[in-house]
């Protein structure tokens, strides 16, 4: 199997991006609700959780195994374990921390099974506990989330080619030259296109931005 490193530009140069921005009605749901819906048998809700947490899962696994493909496999296994173990989750709000703990342990199991030369003593057994948020932080988090959803809406409204170039720039962090090679354009055309997309997003986000408390429909701050 080819050892593909994440963000290895030489490897990814010749491949079109498979990455996509999350979309659909579930992107607006908080994690806890998705967990609840999953428990009711709504697999689309778990699909959203997989999309939402896969990067975090990969990164968490990568911090243990340093191998991208292995991290992918570990992340997959962790999602399956989490799905089957949902009944052990007492509080749906704590899904993120609970799931990443599963990822971490799955990664450790992977290492132990393959005996990669890391001794157990040198591995850091880090538990992952979601920090307790203050009310102010909760409100701030909601505001931030609301802001993120607005940005996501603006991104969803873009043409496919505009969205793709954004992903190549901000996710795969390719240079203009690399983007040009990937998309079969000239470098100057890449520059012009990115400039157009930036200006477009700037104008859209300027219109949508609402200062102050998040008062989007359905999202309310929790009282202390």
């Amino acid at each position: 199997m080819v050892d593909e490193r994440p963000f290895d530009r030489k490897v990814y140069r010749a491949r079109p991006t498979t990455r996509r921005l999350r979309s659909g009605p579930y992107i607006r749901y908080p994690d806890a609700q998705l967990v609840v819906l999953t428990a009711k048998g709504d697999t689309d809700a778990y699909n959203e959780l997989v999309e939402r947490f896969q990067n975090a899962a990969r990164n968490r696994a990568l911090s243990v195994v340093s191998d991208f493909q292995a991290a992918e496999d570990i992340a997959q296994d962790a999602f399956i374990k989490a799905y089957n173990a949902l009944k052990d989750l007492e509080d749906p709000n704590k899904f993120a921390g609970w799931f990443l703990t599963i990822v971490h342990h799955t990664a450790l199991d992977y290492v132990r099974a393959r005996r990669e030369g890391m001794s157990l003593e040198t591995m850091k057994e880090q538990g992952f506990e979601a920090p307790r948020e203050t009310r102010g932080e909760q409100i701030e988090k909601l505001e931030e989330r609301e802001e993120d959803l607005r940005v996501l809406d603006a991104l969803q409204d873009l043409r496919d080619d505009y969205r793709e170039i954004i992903i190549l720039k901000h996710v795969e962090e390719l240079s203009y030259k690399e983007i040009a090679d990937r998309l079969g354009m000239s470098v100057s055309a890449v520059g012009e296109k990115l400039s157009r997309v930036r200006a477009l997003l700037k104008r859209r986000l300027e219109k949508k931005r609402v200062p102050g408390k998040a008062e989007s429909e359905g999202i309310q701050a929790e009282e202390a």
């Binding site: 498979t18 990455r19 996509r20 921005l21 999350r22 992107i27 697999t43 778990y46 699909n47 997989v50 999309e51 939402r52 896969q54 990067n55 992918e72 992340a75 997959q76 999602f79 399956i80 802001e147 993120d148 940005v151 996501l152 991104l155 954004i166 992903i167 901000h170 996710v171 930036r198 997003l201 700037k202 986000l205 300027e206």
Partner: peptide, 25 residues
């Protein structure tokens, strides 16, 4: 605007192939 977009894009992208493999299982 670029910072906001960058943050959201990095948080919001996913690999449909990966998602598909998980959901198939």
């Amino acid at each position: 605007s670029d910072k906001r977009v960058s943050k959201v894009v990095q948080d919001s992208w996913h690999d449909p192939e990966f998602t598909g493999r998980v959901m198939d299982r």
